[in-house]
Design a protein around this nucleic acid. Structure first.
Length: 660
RNA sequence: GCCACCUUAGCUCAACGGCAGAGCAAACGCUUCGUAAGCGUUAGGUUUUGGGUUCAAAUCCCAAAGGUGGCUCCA
């Protein structure tokens, strides 16, 4: 076994085949799931984070690794390294694997690489490709390999690890040292690599690669923030120029509908450095959207037996010492606030507060389950480099609920939670989901609680998923520190993956807080907690909705549902009258009384994605009608005001995606 | 937090060592118009902030703040 330049280093988000799990962690009846094992494709997610890297889950599997595309990208990485070394002779090369949609290579550079450098390197890559050089494979001993890479400290480190036989390319322990190390050479460049590669650069289309589409980026050597910071150059490579153009177009589209851009255009939210980075300010239109979501979910939860609770934004530090949040997440919390002799923390999580509500009374088994729900705002000191629009912020609101249940109730309650989440997403028209069961990483010591409790919790989640017939993938290292979880990963219209809802089974916090209830036999028993949040962070969720819908929300969520546009100023009075009637029917309506001409108003309002534009002129005024134009540009013509109101109100009440 | 890049009018951008400009938005005026942007006028700036180099700095250098792309982290 040889070390590869494309070392698939072990990532937290590594998905394992169930068969590879310790039997104690996973029941044998777990159905096999498709392995998703390419590095960087799926990362751990929580309430508040960047998109899971994009891509087709179906292509992430083993077949990608065997594909021509994979070889093209892998080989392109080598070619880029060759060209980079010609541009920067003092550069040291690190690793350069294929990834989804492309490849990268990490370098230690004598000076930053600029746009001109990238252009030069890209052109040089095309020259090399046109040279038709073969990729030649050879095997050497570790000593020969060291001689070949004199001065290349990163390669030498990789060779040493391979030769010592301590780890394989995934960072996992192996039984013995590698006896042979393999090289690939094209033209003048040789890299430590186990392949596979294309037979010749002639297999690569020089017009189907690009490295100038993305700026150089920083990356830590071996992903370790304590080690050297390298320069990562990303590239993308496809089989045909058309595929490349389509990919670049997809990036453009994602950029165009970036929620930060669309949010600004629609006037939904803003940020102020004076308030603080990562602290979103909701403008009236954004707040209406958010409030609509909140009120709806609140009602759905009440209908399903949840009890509203309200808790403060700060809490005594000792509360979080008991829960374990403070010691565990000390570095990503705002510093404690000193008050008199005590320290308080801006609340980083809602669960401890809800636990204290549970604990405030003696609980009987007759009282359970207790389902506490709160739109709880939490504050986390996210690293400044991580902040991103609404999707990664420092203050956000979680549609949080904590269910305190008996062991007998656990399965049914868990299943009911999953069904509620599914109902919520399907109502919103979000359909493309996969489920992920995040379990402990057996090699990590970052978790609290006994193995037995973890097994029980994991077993409960898996059993519930099985009984629901919910297909899922199991991922190691994806659990919360107190328990395993079930995450719903949503794929948006641009095929990007986002983690949304999460459900967690927790035996540990009840133990840490010594929660009890009195059972039927008069013994004291410990309840189990279910943590769940369909949206997760409201901020992040709305950011995702903005990008998914491109700002054209379903009418029931649209900040402005209808705009009345008078044909001339003479019709302004009639427009106001119509607007009043719509308002009385509960619709969100505005009159565009500006000085612009009608055509311009239509142009502006359609950019705002207002579902219904109501044109009113002299003819409408005489007939008591409105002329309805949809944001899809469909013209429904004139209809009686009452008829429009009835239709629109019904569509809004039904939370329909349709506009007629 | 780390690496790289960016910051000019409310927004999007130009000027790149020699008088700080345009489009959109705004205010005012003309136009009163039937489904994708009518015309004109006015106003808007200590070029993010603080130092430095220079006869001269938006432009070059240093630092800070904020932002962007990545890395790392994420209850």
């Amino acid at each position: 076994m040889t070390k590869c330049c494309a070392a698939t280093r072990r990532l937290p988000g590594h998905i394992v085949e169930p068969s590879a799990l310790r039997p104690a962690m996973l029941p044998a009846r777990v159905r096999p799931t498709r392995a998703v094992s390419c590095p960087g494709f799926v990362r751990p997610v929580c309430y508040n984070r960047s998109p899971v890297p994009t891509g087709d889950a179906q292509l992430m599997a083993e077949e990608y690794k065997d594909s021509q595309l994979f070889k093209i990208r892998h080989s392109s990485a080598h070619i880029m390294a060759q060209a980079m070394r010609e541009r920067f002779p003092e550069a040291h090369i690190a690793i350069g694997p294929p990834i989804e949609d492309g490849f990268y290579y990490d370098f230690e550079l004598p000076q930053p690489a600029g746009e001109e450098d990238l252009k030069w390197v890209e052109n040089r890559m095309k020259e090399i490709i046109r040279g038709g050089y073969p990729f030649q494979y050879r095997e050497v001993s570790a000593d020969e390999a060291r001689a070949e890479f004199t001065g290349e400290k990163y390669k030498l480190e990789l060779i040493d690890e391979l030769a010592s036989g301590k780890f394989d390319e995934n960072g996992n322990p192996v039984s013995g040292p590698a006896t042979k190390i393999s090289f690939y050479t094209q033209d003048t460049f040789t890299d430590l690599c186990r392949g596979p590669h294309v037979a010749s650069t002639a297999e690569i289309n020089p017009d189907a690669i690009s490295i100038t589409f993305k700026a150089p980026a920083g990356a830590y050597w071996r992903g370790d923030e304590k080690r050297e910071q390298l320069t990562r150059i990303y590239g993308t490579a496809w089989e045909t120029p058309e595929q490349l153009q389509e990919y670049l177009h997809r990036l453009e589209e994602a950029k165009r509908r970036d929620h930060r851009v669309v949010g600004e255009k629609l006037g939904l939210f803003t940020f102020s450095p004076l308030v603080g980075k990562g602290l979103p300010l909701w403008k009236p239109k954004g707040a209406v959207l958010r409030d609509t979501l909140e009120r709806w979910l609140r009602q759905v939860q009440i209908d399903n037996g949840y009890l509203p609770v309200v808790t403060p934004h700060i809490g005594n530090l000792n509360l979080y010492r008991t829960s374990g949040h403070y010691p565990y997440y000390k570095d990503s919390q705002y510093a404690p606030i000193q008050v008199d002799e005590e320290e308080y923390l801006l609340k980083p999580m809602n669960c401890p507060h809800h636990i204290m509500i549970y604990k405030s009374e003696m609980r009987s088994y007759r009282d359970l389950p207790q389902r506490y729900a709160e739109f709880g705002t939490v504050y986390r000191y996210e690293q400044s480099g991580e902040l991103h629009g609404l999707t990664r912020v420092r203050g956000f609101t979680v549609d949080d609920a904590h269910l305190f249940v008996t062991p007998e109730q656990l399965l049914a309650e868990f299943k009911a939670v999953v069904k509620l989440i599914q109902y919520v997403f399907s109502t919103l028209g979000l359909q493309d989901f996969r489920a992920r069961v995040g379990i402990r990483d057996p090699q990590s010591d970052k978790y609290v609680g006994d193995d037995a409790l973890w097994e029980q919790a994991t077993e409960a989640i898996l059993q519930a998923c099985d009984e629901l017939g919910l297909p899922y993938a199991v991922e190691e290292g994806e659990a919360a520190f107190y328990g395993p979880k079930l995450d719903f990963i949503f794929r948006d219209v641009l095929k990007r993956n986002w983690q949304l809802g999460t459900v967690q089974v927790d035996y540990n916090l009840p133990a840490r807080f010594e929660l009890e209830y009195v059972a039927e036999d008069n013994t004291r028993q410990r309840p189990i907690m279910i943590h769940r949040a369909p949206f997760g962070s409201l901020e992040r969720f709305i950011g995702i909705l903005i990008e998914h819908f491109d700002g054209a929300f379903p009418a029931w969520l649209a900040p402005v549902q209808a705009v009345v546009i008078p044909v001339t100023d003479k019709n302004l009075g009639y427009a106001e009258k119509i607007a009043g009637q719509l308002k009385a029917a509960g619709l969100r309506v505005e009159v565009d009384a500006g000085k612009a001409r009608m055509g311009q108003k239509i142009a502006v309002q359609r950019e705002q994605h207002v579902p219904w534009l109501l044109i009113v002129g002299g003819r409408d005024e005489e007939a008591g009608t409105v002329s309805v134009r949809l944001r899809t540009d469909e013209d429904l013509g004139a209809m009686p005001v009452a008829a429009f109101i009835e239709q629109a109100a019904q569509l809004v009440n039904e939370k329909s995606a349709a506009l007629q």
